[in-house]
Amino acid sequence: MKRFIPETRAVNVVKRFTCDELVELLTAYLEDVLDRPSHDGVRAHLSCCEHCERYFEQFRATIRVLGDQPPEKLPAGVRDRLMSAFRERHGG
């Protein structure tokens, strides 16, 4: 019976990553494209490595700040010109 044990373990395998490997996987982790053992491995590492957890927090804070840029607007003059061009094109 003993010989079945390694197989049973293989099902629950969680990949182990070093910190330098881990920081390279964060985008893939956030995009949810890692295979199961890698995904679980990243999660396990983050839950017990303070440094990587902090780095991950900062990584996510960076993404939040990026999404918080002030809105841009086409200058009114350009917009007016484009509306006229559209109108002219359609014989208005």
Binding site: T18, C19, D20, E50, H51, C52, R54, Y55, Q58, A61
Partner: peptide
Amino acid sequence: FPDGGRWGEPGAAW
């Protein structure tokens, strides 16, 4: 990561 893939000097908290 000078130490076998582990953090050398981790960044400060923000």
